[in-house]
Structures are given as structure tokens and as C-alpha cells.
Design a protein around this nucleic acid. Structure first.
Lengths: 233, 233
DNA sequence: CAGTGGTCTAGACCACAGG
DNA sequence: CTGTGGTCTAGACCACTGG
């Protein structure tokens, strides 16, 4: 029985995944080190490294210097959600995108918001609320606070044609952010905006983005009933 | 003005991110090719490649052979959610994990389930329902269907002590899966189980896992009101 | 201290797709 | 057809950390 040769890191990865799946390497097992595998696979250690790194990133292997590489006992599934501009999201489904500005004003935010944005309590922020539609049906309600200290040009924008969602992505760079998914009951106002029943269960996405140590914007997106966020594992 | 030298791919990545953030390279711009950057940065092309690949993975660059590398016009934020075993999730918060089996029986699933699992309509599956608790408070309701054709050993397990969530991860390998997040109103039964009000908005996670071309299991996890899934961008 | 993974290098060949 | 990114190689040094 000949050893097949592995010419690229993807094929090495496939073989590694096969061994894990076939329980040739069982959960908790220490697998051979990179040099040995390189020898066995007939390729350079770099190639083995690339493959093992990819598998480790997916959560199936635990790697530690000196301790070696082990098959994870309880692999942590990682679901990656792509959060695109809402317009693209809708158009990629082949639907017609619509947008309607609801309100736009400068205001002192509620405590929960100024708090989360670490903004002084009496400080005015730009508050924009708008509706995104797919094929003329309400799709998502966007409720956003923008920090004019960080994005002063944002005050000059009306957000009547271009949504804040899109405008900010183009004009307000950010370094990092947080995102949270939750469920909430539609208030009567939200129900009216989204054309659903009051107390319908809505999927909410809250995002807070930072540019260095300043908060750029905080947004809550409410999706219509039965909306799903899907991805593969 | 000296050119600082970049000794590792992380520092190259940092510099690339800085240029994008500082708009030295604007959205849509074609950036220099790898060889030129390697020259400029005083490192090997491999190192530049590694750095650019990392940035591209995060969505800030678009790379195409021959066409070169461009700064993304509308970077797609990618939120990666780690879906761990519920017990670990709770224990990592420093809470006490509890588990209670609600029902366990072999049954013919409703059409929606047999359909999604691509199982023959009259085929019996194992149906397990259980509650996960954090500090004796209901945390998540697990409603699961298991395919005994794929996991026959699963029929011998009582799931009274070890949750199906945990048992399957250890004993039923899978190759791929789908996951969906949504919001739903608590039925009266769900409300009773989770100790919340009927019609409360609950966060639901639906997972379907495959082993090759066979469905292993389909599970719906319902989390108590106000539960959030959080991650960083 | 010594073994492991992490990374760098210089050079090479290749696959792909733009013009 | 040609320039770009994608990858491989062999060898080297380094950083971390387990024993």
C-alpha cells in the first residue's frame, strides 16, 4: 500500500479532517507533530502547518507550543454571519429595495444609549429612524444614534435618499465594534412601522461601533416577524 | 524619513489596516501588488501575502488574481458566534449548570421536521426535549429530533443525566450543518417550561447537522426572554 | 532545558482571469 | 498572453511552555 502524496495544504486538511471524522484520531488524542506529518505526507512542514492551522481555526484541533496538537474534546461550532448593507442583502435575494426615512433629529439620548455610547448625559446626538423595505414590504426598522463629534459630516446629511446604514459605512471608518442578537416584542409603534401585530416576536440586532476610543454609532435593527438569519457550519 | 521595517506579518497587517483606516488607500483603490509591498516593507512576499490574506478574510480587501487587490467599497462585517455546549456556556459565566429531561420518546415527527431532515414521512425518530438551567433558573429549552439510522447508539441513551446536546457532540460526528437564528413567541407550554409569560419574545436557534448525505439531528433551542448572543466585530 | 508550533526567507512554479 | 495572487519548498531562527 503506497502512501498517497499530498500536494497542497487543502488535501492535507481533507486528510486530517478524515482522520478526525473516522476516529483514527480520537477526541483528546495527541496527533503527530508537524515534522512527522510532513514526512508522512511527503510535503514541507509549512504545508502541514497551514493545513493544521486551518483545522484549528475551525475549532477541531487545539494547538499549543511544546504541548503539541490535540483533537478537541468538545469542538466549538463557529457560525459566521455576514452582516451586509441591508440594501445589498435585499437585492441579492432578487427583491426590490425600498427605503423610507421616518424621523431625523438631534436630541439628547435616553440614558441607556448615552451610557452604552459612553457619551456625556447632556450631549446631543443625531437620531435617525428609518424603514427598509423589500418588494414594498417592511423588512427592517433601523433606529440609530450617531455621534457628531466623531462624524461631523453626518449632520449635513438628510438620510432621505441614502440610509444611514449605507452612508456611514462609506464615510465613517471604525476600528472595532460589538454586536448582539436578541428577541423582543413589538411595541405598538414598532408594530405599526413594520406592519405586524403588536407583541409580535421580532429579531433584534444591536450594533455599537468604535473608532479608537470614541463611539461612532449605535444602531438597533428590528426585523419583521419570521425573519431568519441563516448560515452554514 | 526612514522606512520602518516590518518584521512579521502582524505588523504588516497593522500597517495595511492603518492605511485603509487613514484613507491613504481609499475604498475602491487598487493597492500595490505583493512584490512591491514586500520591497517597500523590507520583507518577503510570503509575509505580505499572509498579512493581506488575513485582511481580506476580514472583508476589508478584495483580492483577485491578475486584477490585483482593492480596498472593499462596502466591507461586509463578519460576526462569528461560538456555539458551545450549553453546559460550558453556563459554567464559563460562573453559573451553576442544571439539566432536566422533559420527554424522551420515539415518534413520527411532524412534516416540517421529517421534511427538513429529508427523512421518510412514516419513519420514526427519537424525540428528546429537555431544559437547561443556570443557577436553577431556566436558561434554554432544547427540542431535538435524532435520526437513529445514523446514530443507533443514541437509542440506548436515556438523556436523563447527560443532555443530548452533550452526548451527540461526543458520539455523533458530523460533516456540516446549517444554523438559523430567529425570534418566536412563547407558546403556553414553552412559557411554562421556561417560566416566562406566554407570548414572550424568545430567541430561537435552529440547527440541522449532516454526516455526509444523512441528517444526524435537528434541534431547536429556545432561550429565555432577554437572552442575548453577543460577539465582537 | 528541550520539544513544539510560529514564523521568516528566497526562490520557484502554477492557476487564473483581465485586457 | 501576461501580470497577479496562490502555493510549495528547504532551511532557519525564534517564542513559548511543559516537564
Amino acid at each position: 500500500m503506497n502512501k498517497p502524496s499530498f500536494r497542497n495544504w487543502q488535501s492535507v486538511q481533507t486528510e486530517v479532517l478524515r482522520r478526525i471524522h473516522a476516529r483514527e484520531w480520537e477526541p483528546g488524542d495527541l496527533i503527530p507533530n508537524e515534522s512527522d506529518l510532513a514526512l508522512e505526507f511527503g510535503c514541507a512542514r509549512t504545508t502541514v502547518n497551514r493545513a493544521l492551522r486551518a483545522v484549528a481555526d475551525s475549532g477541531l484541533l487545539d494547538r499549543r507550543r511544546k504541548a503539541g496538537t490535540r483533537v478537541a474534546e468538545q469542538p466549538v461550532a463557529k457560525a459566521t454571519l455576514a452582516i451586509a448593507v441591508i440594501r445589498n442583502e435585499i437585492e441579492e435575494r432578487g427583491q426590490y429595495y425600498g427605503y423610507r426615512l421616518i424621523t431625523r433629529r438631534e436630541a439628547i439620548p435616553p440614558l441607556a444609549v448615552s451610557d452604552a455610547m459612553k457619551s456625556p448625559q447632556n450631549h446631543t446626538l443625531l437620531h435617525v429612524r428609518a424603514l427598509h423595505l423589500a418588494d414594498d414590504t417592511p423588512y427592517a426598522f433601523e433606529d440609530r444614534w450617531i455621534n457628531p463629534k466623531v462624524v461631523p459630516e453626518g449632520l449635513a446629511e438628510s438620510y432621505e435618499i441614502v440610509s444611514a446604514n449605507e452612508w456611514l459605512l462609506k464615510h465613517a471608518p471604525y476600528t472595532h465594534g460589538e454586536i448582539a442578537f436578541s428577541a423582543t416584542s413589538a411595541t405598538s409603534e414598532e408594530a405599526e412601522i413594520l406592519c405586524c401585530n403588536e407583541n409580535s416576536a421580532l429579531l433584534a440586532i444591536d450594533r455599537l461601533t468604535w473608532d479608537g476610543s470614541s463611539t461612532v454609532t449605535k444602531v438597533r435593527l428590528l426585523f419583521g416577524p419570521r425573519h431568519q438569519l441563516r448560515t452554514i457550519l
